[in-house]
Design a binder for these strands. Structure first.
Length: 929
DNA sequence: GCAAGGTC
């Protein structure tokens, strides 16, 4: 059996179809692995790399004392399958193969993916013959040729790729760990470092520094308006920028009529049709259409998977001869493109345009099939249409312009005007993505004299360099050799994800700056594109056998060791530097109380805004817990409080804008403060003026302080403080009731806990005690069934009773004993005789009396009389000595207040549960005794 | 929990 291994599913399928010829190909999909079969041949599609390099076991713990980051430099490297399913199917099939052909992409990474497959094959079948097919397009001709002349795998080329993998892992992981640990960052907040991402970040940071250092210079431009045959002419002074205003003014003053035409130079300008698309130019063009880099690639991937365009990851800008250009044009010449397709077919240039880069792995990006706007969808259509039109344009003739340069003078001053007219639109007929503004001038000849309608003196300023847009950055990365066509947009996403950069165009955050500054100072190598260049040189040398992979790795590890010499000696300094530089990111603005800075602070999952002058200033504002999203400041600043707005951000959720934290702090306390009796609008205004926003800030002050602060009489201040305390208590009880409702009621449609609580509060039922006493009808109105309503009020009563008893001061251990005896409500304590309670619960009589007294106090009732333990025990003995008195009787007697001979004699005969006869007999015996 | 490179 012949096994063919392709880099990806789609390649496997097409190779199978081509090689099968007329034979039928059967496709099998097993999870993530695709297998195509015909005759005695199987073709499997990988998914790029199916294994990855990692450190040998033992290096997982970042904070390990025995394996600090530096030890990663010399840690053993292993390969681990990342696509286990594909690996297992590959190996299963490979066992039975007697020829294996590696047919991965024709580039370095493809050779490495091939070698990885080779090793997986060898692990289960060490005798099978393995060869390699190299093709630069998946077309019948190319594929048949490549499979007719297979060659051995190029292990040196693969080794070059492998060396890159290891260098990247070792540098990236060790530096990432080091710098994250130094800055005390963990979890989702690590500070990453890498050969590609760090220089890319540095470019953005450097550009920002240039912008900050830029000093604008004022300059002046002189132009004038004229006309001929009612057509306007705008002429510029040939001096261009005037640095001195006086000179410019002199030029204006010297510009006297008439305007004389001295010379008219006619010319022609060729306007070259654009070259075939590679990934970078696709991303750049998509940027102009409004797609972010990552979005453009996602859409392109989608178009590719659905057969509308060719493979979107390519560096090639030259159509391979095998590509059937005419066929594609005719396929596209329908629907929306009918007219343009026909035009292209009729006006096709002799040879398509070609760009500077020509590679062997994939053709330039081109349409692969016709799609209508309806089928493709709005989101992707703009990009697809662009790809089609760009393809058309590369086959269309150049456009031609007629240009006109007119030299003129006004008085002593020289002027010039330029015009341009599109005489042959060429490719622009089907491709209108680049600006082609015509500037039409009237017909002018030397010697013409024209009027001067106006002379303008424009004051302008030199501009700082522009920030990078995503597409500009990708272009720049390509120029510098950073990343690949497939990874550049991901690198940018990574920088955004790490919160190193933000916005569009891209700006560095403080974290991004701090990391770049630190790396530039201590580990400069990793921040420079030269590292990539050097690595590529070394990879080339490995490829041509001038160097061995091991030597390159040893050299690289020695370099990294020297970097760590620098880093380790300065670890605490580096950490402090980064933390100091990044603290500003959490600063929100001035504290309204003391003027120092307010900071977002996090403690576990809770977060709040507090004053940096704590503990001298205790001003703070609470924020929703971190589960709602981490609080970050936004650029927007509250005009009233000069505080940055706050936003809660959570992965996978839409950000939640809280606005100005102080505004929302005030708003959320407003209702509570208004609940204080005697607190009118006037007083609230006065409180706010003195920066008292939260109700808790009132209760934490003495009446004297408050009256001094806001200038009200002490007596009034005292009332307010007491009132505030009551409100806090009330709100606490309300919250407690909300929680109780939420815990007891199963939410169902139309009766959310929030809704029920609202209805209850409207009826003035705002704590658990009130709920216990509430009319179940209220709850029925809120949507509960009768049984549910009774259950809620019943358990509310229980909960409230338990709370009252606990608040009265009865310790938990006694409460437990009472509860076991069924004594759960305050009423039970008030209505039952202490003797009965004591006997039923086993709590000693003296303690029971103490507890009952506590409750009586709550209810303004007189406390029960004292009974000592001794007297009680003696009394019990007196009673049990009487014939026929057992424990059951003793309890009944106790509940009636009978606990000794004396009380027995005083009692009437109607004790519940004991017949009057028995009682009078007992009394008689007691008298005798 | 780290990189960069494939692919989805």
């Amino acid at each position: 059996m012949h096994l063919i291994i392709a880099e990806k599913n789609i390649a496997a399928r097409r190779i199978a179809e081509i090689l099968a010829g007329k034979a039928k190909v059967s496709a099998k999909k097993d999870g993530s692995a695709n297998l195509y079969e015909f005759g005695d041949t199987k073709v499997i599609g990988l998914r790029g790399h199916v294994v990855e390099v990692d450190f040998e076991p033992g290096y997982d713990n970042w904070r390990s004392a025995t394996h600090p980051p530096r030890t990663l430099i010399d840690a053993g490297i292993i390969k681990r399958p990342t696509e286990k399913k594909i690996v297992s199917i590959l190996q299963k099939v490979a066992r039975k193969a007697d020829l294996v052909t590696i047919a991965t992409d024709y580039d370095t990474e493809g050779e490495l993916i091939g070698k990885e497959a080779y090793e997986l094959v060898r692990a289960v079948n060490n005798t099978v013959e393995v060869d390699r097919a190299r093709f630069s397009a998946i077309t019948p001709d190319e594929i048949h040729r490549a499979f007719a002349e297979t060659k051995p795998l190029d292990f040196h080329l693969a080794a070059a790729g492998e060396t890159r993998q290891i260098v990247d892992l070792v540098w990236g992981a060790s530096l990432t760990r080091f710098i994250s640990i130094a800055a005390k960052r963990g979890g989702g907040n690590i500070l990453s470092v890498g050969r590609v991402q760090s220089p890319t970040l540095a470019m953005i940071v450097d550009r920002e520094k240039e912008i900050e250092a830029f000093v604008p210079e004022t300059y002046w431009m002189v132009r004038l308006d004229s006309e001929k045959d009612h057509l306007p002419i705008e002429a510029r002074h040939t001096h261009g920028r005037f640095k001195e205003k006086e000179e410019a003014q002199a030029a204006v003053a010297g510009s006297l009529p008439p305007l004389t035409v001295n010379e008219v130079i006619e010319g022609e300008k060729a306007d070259r049709a654009p070259t075939p698309l590679d990934t970078t130019s696709l991303i750049v063009a998509a940027g102009r259409l409004g797609y972010s880099a990552a979005n453009a690639m996602r859409v392109a991937e989608d178009l590719y998977m659905n057969g509308y365009i060719s493979y979107p990851r390519t560096d090639n800008t030259v159509y391979p001869p095998s590509l059937n250009l005419n066929g594609i044009v005719s396929d596209l010449s329908k629907g929306v493109f009918a007219k343009d397709g026909k035009w292209v077919a009729e006006n096709m240039r002799p040879k398509p345009t070609r760009g500077k880069k020509e590679t062997t792995d994939h053709p330039p990006i081109h349409p692969a099939g016709y799609g209508s706007p309806e089928k493709i969808g709005e989101d992707a259509w703009k990009l697809y249409e662009f790809i089609v039109r760009r393809f058309f344009a590369t086959l269309s003739p150049d456009a031609k312009w007629k240009t006109l340069k007119v030299n003129m003078s006004a008085g002593s001053e020289p002027y010039t005007a330029t015009g341009g007219r599109l005489v042959e639109p060429g490719y622009r007929t089907v491709y209108q993505y680049s600006d082609a503004k015509e500037r039409i001038l009237p017909k002018l000849t030397a010697g013409d004299t024209l009027p001067i309608n106006a002379v303008h003196l424009d004051e302008k300023e030199t501009q700082p360099p522009a920030r990078y847009t995503q597409s500009r950055l990708i272009q720049k990365m390509e120029e510098l050799g950073l990343g690949t066509k497939s990874t550049r947009h991901e690198v940018i996403q990574k920088l955004i994800g790490r919160k190193y950069v933000e916005g569009n165009p891209l700006r560095p955050t403080l974290v991004g700056r701090a990391v770049t500054d630190t790396l530039e100072q201590y580990a400069d190598t990793i921040t420079r594109p030269e590292m990539t260049r050097a690595l590529e040189d070394h990879m080339n040398m490995i490829k041509v056998r001038e160097k061995r992979s091991d030597d390159v790795l040893t050299e690289s590890r020695e370099m990294l060791d020297r970097v760590f010499d620098q880093l380790e000696g300065n670890e605490s300094l580096i950490g402090e530097d980064i933390m100091e530089m990044t603290i500003e990111e959490s600063i929100v603005g001035p504290c309204p109380i003391c003027g120092h800075s307010l900071r977002i602070r996090r403690m576990g999952s809770s977060q709040f805004i507090g004053c940096m002058h704590y503990p001298d200033c205790t001003f703070n504002m609470s924020l929703p817990p971190g589960t709602w999203g981490g609080a970050v400041r936004t650029k927007e600043v509250c005009p009233t409080h000069s505080l940055n707005h706050i936003r809660l951000v959570r992965k996978g959720a839409r950000p939640w804008d809280l606005g100005c934290p102080l505004c929302s702090h005030i708003a959320s306390n407003k209702e509570a403060i208004a609940m204080i009796p005697g607190c009118d609008d006037e007083l609230i205004r006065s409180l706010h003026e003195h920066h008292l926003y939260a109700i808790t800030e009132l209760t934490s002050r003495t009446p004297l302080e408050l009256s001094g602060l806001i200038g009200i009489p002490t007596q009034k201040a005292e009332e307010i403080i007491l009132g505030a305390g009551d409100v806090i208590n009330k709100l606490r009880l309300r919250t407690e009731m909300k929680k109780f409702i939420r815990d007891t009621i199963t939410p169902r449609k139309g009766r959310s806990p929030a809704k029920i609580v609202k209805a209850l509060i409207e009826e003035d039922v705002s704590d658990i005690t009130a709920l216990g006493k509430a009319d179940p009808g209220l709850l029925r109105k809120a949507g509960l069934s009768e049984t549910e309503a009774l259950e809620v009020t019943g358990s509310a009563k229980e909960a409230s009773d338990a709370r009252i008893l606990k608040d009265a001061g009865i310790p938990a251990i006694s409460l437990k004993k009472y509860r076991e005896a069924g004594i759960t409500s305050p009423e039970a304590f008030l209505n039952r005789h202490p003797a009965g309670i004591s006997l039923a619960s086993g709590v000693s009589i003296e303690t029971v009396i103490k507890h009952v007294s506590l409750i009586c106090e709550q209810y303004n009732r007189p406390p029960p009389g004292k009974i000592t333990k001794g007297a009680f025990l003696k009394g019990q003995k007196e009673l049990t000595d009487l014939p026929g008195v057992g424990e059951a009787t003793l309890l009944k007697l106790a509940d009636a207040g009978v606990y000794n001979r004396e009380t027995l004699l005083a009692v009437r005969d109607d004790i519940p549960g004991i017949s009057p006869d028995v009682i009078s007999k007992m009394k008689k015996k007691a008298e005798i005794a």
